[in-house]
């Protein structure tokens, strides 16, 4: 079906993908089972004696508790993103005309045009103990000695929500915008009041966007290491920061690789578990309904 040139182009993209994603991942996987080479040995990782030792090490202090804290951070920040993104996306998709909608969507992604570090430093200045926010609070008569937000998990949370919010808003706004207004009119016509229409039609249909936003935000959030490093300092460590430091300062590539693999396994596990749960629940509900209907058919 595709033209010869186009097919070559597609093939090239597979090669690209294999070269820069599959191959590095495979190397990481192998490294995770090795151990750090001694000072006098060649190379960074000794692959002579493969074992699971690095994984046990990754589950212990400090990376184990940090992993748990990272999961907590990612779950809470994703939930916050969802809670903030939904009304914003709803407003953009439903309350704005096509032209204003395009402008507002542009504004949502506008921060991405500025350098990431610059934006994070901006937040540091804003949140610093005697910074802009502090001055603002003084001005409105809310007196504190100094602000202690920076370099805490709270600051990491702010950074995470701020950075990933657009990724939640965009897919959700697209899904909400695509809901056929005739469906809402049909519900209205059948006697549903506005809030009921939202609860029974708009919200269930928009779940596809909520799921997309959750995955899009949660996955990179869990592995993020720059935001916690910049916003959280020593108290705001996340697993990504530890992986990075094992590869750089620690020079323990095999342990870093094991942590990274563990993270991927946990992520895939979470997504798979959620999916299984959702399909299972749906299946059970459908079967229950079918049985109930069968009874109705028999009795009528």
């Amino acid at each position: 079906m595709l033209g010869r040139g186009l097919r070559g182009f597609v093939a090239l993209s597979y090669v690209w993908f294999a070269l820069w994603f599959i191959a590095p991942s495979a190397i990481m996987l192998i490294y995770a089972f090795g151990h750090t080479a001694g000072l006098t040995q060649k190379g960074l990782v000794n692959l002579n004696h493969l074992g699971l030792g690095n994984f046990w090490q990754a589950l212990k202090y400090p990376s184990g508790p940090v992993l748990v804290a990272s999961l907590e951070n990612a779950v809470v920040a994703t939930a916050l993103c969802g809670v903030i993104a939904y009304p914003v996306a709803y407003f953009i998709a439903r309350k704005l005309g096509p032209r204003t909608r395009a402008i507002v969507l542009l504004l949502v992604v506008l921060p991405f045009w500025t350098d990431y570090l610059l934006r994070m430093l901006g937040w540091r200045i804003f949140l610093s103990p005697l910074g802009l926010l502090y001055n603002g609070m003084q001005a409105v008569g809310w007196h504190v000695n100094y602000l202690s937000i920076l370099d805490t998990r709270g600051a990491v949370m702010i950074g995470l929500v701020y950075n990933y919010l657009p990724l939640f808003i965009l897919p959700l706004a697209v899904v909400l915008e695509r809901i056929d207004p005739l469906l809402l009119q049909a519900a209205d016509d059948l006697g549903a009041k506005p809030w009921t229409i939202f609860r029974t039609i708009t919200f269930p249909i928009s779940m596809a966007g909520v799921v997309a936003g959750t995955v899009l935000v949660f996955v990179p959030m869990l592995g993020d290491y720059v935001t916690p490093t910049l916003m959280g300092g020593a108290r705001g460590l996340m697993i990504g920061s530890l992986v990075a430091s094992e590869f750089t300062e620690g020079q323990n590539w095999s342990l870093g690789a094991a942590m990274a693999i563990l993270l991927v396994v946990i992520l895939v596990g979470i997504v798979a578990a959620c999916w299984l749960l959702a399909t299972g629940v749906r299946y059970v509900l459908a079967r229950a309904r079918e049985r109930a209907l069968a009874r109705v058919l028999v009795t009528t």
Binding site: D180, L182, L183, Q185, A186, A187, D188, D189, L190, G191, A192, K193, I201, P204, I205, A286, R289, L293
Partner: peptide
């Protein structure tokens, strides 16, 4: 009266069936 308060129902041109719900 708003649409939901009128005892009048509409069959829409493109049917406007709710895609996330079963026929029942």
């Amino acid at each position: 009266l708003p649409a939901h308060a009128r005892n009048v129902n509409t069959v829409f041109q493109n049917y406007a069936l709710f895609p996330h719900l079963s026929v029942f």
